[in-house]
Design a protein around this nucleic acid. Structure first.
Lengths: 344, 344
DNA sequence: AATTAGCACTCGACATCATAGAGTGCTAAC
DNA sequence: GTTAGCACTCTATGATGTCGAGTGCTAATT
């Protein structure tokens, strides 16, 4: 186990390294006002902690750098959440008080706040379509052959799809069809809609619609496709400014990984029940981001999990600040959403 | 004026440089099968063309590189559009035949094709909201206090905005309101809607609605905000793979510039009447992209200009291929849109 | 008069080498 | 247990030298 003094030094070293991005030497530590011991003492302590795996040296005669184990210990036991400046708090409050005319804007705004305030990259997973329920369905004709099908969910999300109308179907038929769908499917989770049509609505449709086969076919096409591209980014290029990514070969695989939906979904999948979840370096399963840490928090409407907000940056990340910010932002987003869409 | 032989050499040099990204020397040219003259002759010709401003040397004893004037001449007089491979043509056809359920997807798909096939960055300006007309308006209640206002345009674009309902307004009133709006405002260009409400609808509303002041206020709020964020990107990180941007300080200002809407709007503003418009290096007004060329084409529905597609890459760009691709893609997009949304 | 061979010269790329400086580990003294 | 002292290690930096691709110019050739 680490001694009191070792913990003190570890915390100090991690904090300094996060600021400077340079390996920290014993002399630099001993010079600080809040440190009384000589550099030799510190050298001994650092050597011990290195042996225990909390620190590393980039090369044999350089200063120390936290290892992943070191970061993990720091995050679990030594991290004291940062205070945000008054100005920052005001800015955040203001951003969430603003009138957003679309749910998408609110979420994008959240991503922007996270990246602007951290200088890292932020990712926000939009409300999961799979878990949202149908509120209202509407079909609006564009021309003789095309209509726009509009699906509104309980979360205020609006989905629209252009559909080609089967030839020969009557406008009144469409109207009837939409009416039936609205009455029967209201409250159905989106992912169950196709199933519900097949099981419950088919017969009703057959009774009321002359062109019922065509209608079924059209509905199946329009509803079959689940666009899950609900990923919002902020500060995508912020990574480029981090010294650890100063050469392009390091940053390119990273940026490409962040474009891949499967990877992002996996990185942000909610785990554990702590408010903020932290994954450091290799704890993330992807080689492309082995030098990065991912901090996630979830947001909700009225307590029900809706989506995830995340910040991704180098393992050498300002954890205290990001933790605080994620906490505030995820709460603010939940609050804002709940106020707006609670009564579904 | 340039001699026949000089033109031949210029074209050849530009083509080679585009491929290799290395300065081209006289010896390398003379070694080619299709070149008969000795390297000394070529040296003389190159020196002459340099004096005329068509070529440059990175340093005094290196090979030649095209100047912007050289690229401009090449593009205006020497460029022969490339043929796409059969496979490429098939892929494009396939992409545009695909069923897109939302206008946005079709446009994003277009951007993706452009960037995938060129390895540069593509930008597509979505249909300009300002020039599109109201097709249908709809209001769907989410809760007692909030509704979603849905605006559908003749281009199949669906806009949705969350509005807070004034307290005390009756559902029937809302219904009446929406009916009036639909009857009166159909076909009105979006940017004129507020104006139209003020001029024409006010009185009608006063006659029919008890809470007419509240309704007006709400409408003004909901319709006042014009989201113009209709910029779709493809291959944002492709620039990083270009040798001219191998160090991050060169590429960061570029990427940031491409995030700025004002800059992008300016870069893509339609000019001239040629199908493909090319701006080389400094011809673009922004310092951040002085090493880049921007190629644009416009797309339309039934002949009416709707938006712009563009490819941005280093001045050392494969102009022939990009020109051909932009031509095909912009035509395909126009065709696809016209088929779908023509009958507005 | 146009073309080409020949040659001295230029400049960047690359490798080699020396040096300075920050940092360590170890030993012995406090 | 702590610290001063010192030899040692490794990187970063800059100076130096060499190689090769390329040029410009002159004189010879066609």
């Amino acid at each position: 186990m680490l001694t009191e003094r070792q913990l003190f030094l570890l915390k100090l070293l991690v904090n300094d390294y996060i600021k400077s991005a340079e390996p920290i030497g014993s002399r630099a530590i001993s010079k600080r006002d809040d440190v009384q011991f000589s550099s030799a003492t510190i050298r001994n302590e650092l050597a011990d902690m290195e042996e225990l795996g909390y620190l590393e040296k980039p090369h044999s005669s350089s200063g120390r750098v936290p290892s992943e184990k070191g970061y993990r210990y720091y995050v679990d036991h030594l991290l004291s959440p940062a205070m945000l400046s008054k100005q920052e708090m005001v800015d955040i409050k203001k951003a969430f008080r603003e009138q957003y005319y679309e749910l998408e804007k609110l979420i994008q705004g959240t991503a922007d706040i996270l990246s602007d305030f951290t200088n890292y990259t932020s990712i926000v997973l939009g409300p999961e379509v799979l878990e949202t329920k149908l509120k209202h369905i509407q079909m609006i004709s564009l021309s003789a052959e095309t209509s726009v099908l509009i699906i509104i969910t309980n979360t205020g999300h609006v989905e629209n799809r252009t559909v080609s109308l089967p030839k020969g179907i009557q406008p009144q038929e469409i109207e009837k069809l939409v009416n039936i769908l609205n009455v029967r499917l209201k409250g159905t989770p989106l992912y169950k809609i196709k199933f519900a049509i097949d099981r419950e609505i088919k017969d009703v449709l057959r009774q009321h619609l002359s062109q019922y086969q065509l209608a079924i076919k059209m509905l199946n096409e329009a509803l079959s496709y689940h666009p899950l591209d609900q990923i919002y980014y902020g500060g995508k290029t912020n990574m480029l400014a981090q010294p650890e990514f100063k050469d392009i070969d390091k940053v390119l695989p990273l940026l490409n990984a962040l474009e891949r939906k499967d990877i992002v979904y996996d990185l942000l999948k909610p785990i554990g029940d702590s408010r903020i979840h932290i994954k450091i370096g290799q704890e993330n399963d992807f080689n492309e981001i082995k030098n990065c840490s991912v901090l996630t928090a979830s947001y909700s409407i009225g307590g029900e999990h809706l989506g995830t907000v995340a910040v991704i940056g180098p393992t050498r990340m300002t954890y205290p600040k990001v933790v605080t910010l994620l906490d505030i932002v995820s709460r603010s987003l939940s609050k804002s959403l709940t106020e707006r869409y609670q009564g579904y």
